[in-house]
């Protein structure tokens, strides 16, 4: 670590890498998911939109949207955690404009979602935690909330196959 590295350089390195992970995926853009970053901590944000509705009577967010949002949060967190050290050391510099620079993504093996309360027609947030990441397999937990951080509306656990050879 270089204690005297300019702050702007650190921020742009991390923001560029995160942007490369997220903006290159058409489906993440289609759902409208973005990521807030505080140091290495990521929060996935899903701004509400009419097309996310599953039950127009209530109304409530579609269960499939909730599952997809949590899976996106898990995959981005897992990839972010996996590239962090190489990115900080300058060994890789993912760039959205250079497809070959993008890290390979883990593959979902299975994903289980608990629906704790119905998703309200407003913004949703999610944070994922890599519980265990080995050379081949990883286990990730995700929590999602809306108005209250302590009142989760969904949580999930997933297992992933890590990309081989970078």
């Amino acid at each position: 670590m270089d204690r005297n590295e300019p702050l702007a350089a650190i921020k742009s390195r991390r923001d560029n890498a995160l942007n490369a992970l997220v903006s290159g995926v058409p489906y993440i853009r289609w759902l409208g998911i973005r990521f807030d970053r505080r140091g290495d901590e990521l929060t996935a944000v899903l701004p509400f939109d009419q097309k996310l509705i599953g039950n127009p009577m209530l109304p409530a967010i579609h269960g499939g949207v909730t599952a997809a949002f949590l899976e996106v949060a898990a995959i981005v967190e897992l990839t972010w955690t996996a590239i962090w050290e190489d990115m900080e050391q300058g060994r890789i510099a993912p760039d959205a404009a250079v497809p070959d620079s993008l890290p390979r993504l883990p593959k979902t093996i299975d994903f289980t979602v608990d629906y704790l309360r119905s998703g309200l027609p407003r913004d949703a947030y999610a944070r994922a935690k890599v519980v265990r990441s080995g050379r081949r397999y990883a286990s990730v937990q995700v929590e999602a909330w809306q108005d209250h951080r302590q009142k989760l509306f969904a949580q999930a656990t997933g297992h992933f196959l890590m990309p081989q050879n970078g």
């Binding site: 058409p26 489906y27 599953g54 579609h62 269960g63 997809a68 899976e71 497809p99 994903f111």
Partner: peptide, 27 residues
């Protein structure tokens, strides 16, 4: 559909789309 792709390298549809399809079909 192109805008539902999860891995731009391969063009494979995102797992989340499959989740939405499965959830709707089960419901």
């Amino acid at each position: 559909r192109e805008d539902l792709v999860g891995d731009p390298r391969s063009g494979v549809i995102h797992g989340g789309v499959i989740s939405a399809l499965m959830d709707t079909c089960c419901g």
